[in-house]
Design a protein around this nucleic acid. Structure first.
Lengths: 256, 256
DNA sequence: AAGTGGTCTAGACCACCGG
DNA sequence: CGGTGGTCTAGACCACTTA
C-alpha cells in the first residue's frame, strides 16, 4: 500500500470533464484496499489499519473510507468488529465453512466428518480444466481426489483441480496431516484466499467408480456440483467437481 | 405510513439507559418503510417518496433515510434509479425472473419456454404442507401442478401449494390466460409479493408419474428442488416442489 | 481512558433524468 | 431547469473492547 494514485478531483479533471469514466473516490479506495489484500499486505485473520488511519493515509474523510470498507465487508472479504477493528476474512473459523459447503443434514443432527484422500497427482492440465482455470493448455495442475464421510458413511466424492504454480509442494501427506478444512490450508500454507465461487449443479446417475466409492449401485442418483473458486482479482484458483449423496442430506440455498 | 413511533432518543431514554435493546434510528425507519410496503402503501413498480420527503416526514436527516433505503435496496425490496427515484421491486421485469429460476441452459442458447397447467385444486392442507406454510392443519390450500417446457421438451415439473385465503379465485383458466410469470401474477392479481426464498435440493430417481410427464424412464436422475417463498414479514406464502431435468440445463449458484 | 467501529447531522456539490 | 439519487466532508456523539 505504498503509492496512492487517486484520480485528480479538481474542477478540471474527469469529474467535471464529462466524457471520462467517472469513478467515485470510495471505489478507488476500495480498489486500493483490494490491492493490499491481494498482495498480502494484511493476512487473513489480521486487522487492517483503522478507518481514521486509512482516511489520513488516503487524504479522504473517514466516511469515504467507511463506504469502501462497507462494500468489502458486504462481500465477506473483511469482517468488522465494533470496538476492535476490521479484520481480513479467514477460512479458519467454524462459521465460515458452511459458506462454501452447502450440503446439510436433513435433520439438524450434527455429524462427525472425516476425509480420506484417494490420490494426489501433478499432471498437464486437460483442455477443459485448463480453460476453466484460465491456464495455458499443457500447464501443470494438481489433481486431488478424496471422499468425505459423515458418521462413517461416504457422502461426498471430490475431484479437485488446482493450478500447479501457486500450489507447489502439495502432497497427500501434508493433506492428511492437516485437520483444518481445505480452504484454510490453502490460506495458511499457500497464501491463496478463496473469496467467491460459482457452482453448476445437475442430477446424474452414478457411474461404476462413483458407485463403488459411495457404496451405492450404479445408476443411483447423485448431485453433481461443479465449482469454480476465485481469489481476490476474480482469478480462478480451483475447479472442484463433486458428487453428493443426498439420501440424508440436501443442498441448501437462499434466493434473495 | 400514518403514525410514526420512533423511539425517544433524548439522553434519558434507551440509548443512554444501557439495558434496553438499542435500535438505531435508521433501523426504525427501515421497519416503517417495510410496514408501508407490506400494507401496500406503495405498489410494486411504483416510486416511494423521495429521500428528502421521507426525511422531513420522519424528522431525520437525509443520510439516515438513505441508510434505511440502502439496506432495503440491498435486499432487493427496493430499486434505486438515479435521477428518477426509488421504486418498489416487481416481478414484472425480465431480469428479475432469473433471480428465482436458477435453471439455466448449459450452452447459453436462449430457449422458448411454455407452461402447461395440469390441474388446480382447492383442498385441506396435508400436515407437511400446513407446517411449512405455517397454517393450522385443515386450512384450505390451493394445489397447482404444471409442466414447463423449453424448446418443446418438458423440463420442469412443479407441484405448488398456496395458502387458500390470499389466493381466492385462482383458477386454471386465469393461469392459462396470463402470459406473465407466476410471481408477477401473484403480485398484480393477489397483492402478494415474493421477496425471498429458501431452497433444499436433492438428486432423486424419477417415479412413474414424473417419468411419464418428463418423457424419461423410471429411475432417471432428477433434480428435486423444494422451495419456500416468503413475503414481506418473512411470512411463507408458497411451497413449491420442483423436479428438474438436467440433461441440457443446470442449476447455477453463487457462493459469496 | 483510549481506541475502535457505528450512528447521525447539516451542508455542499455532482450525476442523471425528464419536461 | 428542477428534482431525484449519489458522493464527500467535518464534526459530534454513542457503543463496544481492551487495558
Amino acid at each position: 500500500m505504498s503509492d496512492q494514485t487517486l484520480t485528480d478531483r479538481s474542477p478540471d479533471s474527469d469529474r467535471a470533464g464529462g466524457s471520462a469514466a467517472f469513478s467515485p473516490l470510495y471505489q478507488q479506495i476500495k480498489a486500493l484496499l483490494l490491492q493490499g489484500l491481494d498482495r498480502g499486505e494484511w493476512k487473513p485473520g489480521e486487522a487492517i489499519p483503522s478507518e481514521l488511519e486509512l482516511a489520513a493515509r488516503f487524504q479522504v474523510s473517514q466516511g469515504t473510507v467507511r463506504k469502501a470498507i462497507d462494500e468489502l465487508a458486504a462481500e465477506n472479504l473483511l469482517l468488522r468488529r465494533q470496538g476492535k477493528g476490521t479484520f481480513v476474512a479467514t477460512h479458519h473459523e467454524a462459521k465460515v465453512r458452511f459458506r462454501f459447503l452447502r450440503l446439510t443434514p436433513d435433520d439438524a443432527t450434527p455429524a462427525v466428518s472425516g476425509s480420506r484422500i484417494l490420490d494426489v497427482r501433478r499432471l498437464k492440465a486437460p483442455a477443459d480444466v485448463a480453460a476453466l482455470l484460465e491456464l495455458r493448455s499443457g500447464e501443470t495442475v494438481v489433481n486431488l481426489r478424496r471422499v468425505l464421510s459423515f458418521d462413517d458413511s461416504p457422502t461426498i466424492l471430490d475431484d479437485i483441480w488446482l493450478p500447479g504454480a501457486p500450489f507447489k509442494g502439495l502432497t497427500a501427506e501434508l493433506l492428511e496431516a492437516s485437520r483444518s478444512p481445505l480452504y484454510a490450508l490453502f490460506e495458511s500454507e499457500y497464501g491463496v484466499s478463496m473469496v467467491r465461487a460459482e457452482e453448476k449443479i445437475k442430477a446424474v446417475a452414478a457411474d461404476a467408480a462413483q458407485a463403488e466409492l459411495l457404496a451405492v449401485e450404479v445408476g443411483h442418483p447423485l448431485l453433481q456440483v461443479e465449482r469454480i473458486s476465485f481469489t481476490y482479482g476474480d482469478r480462478p484458483m480451483e475447479l472442484r467437481r463433486g458428487a453428493y449423496l443426498t439420501e440424508r442430506f440436501h443442498y441448501r440455498n437462499s434466493l434473495n
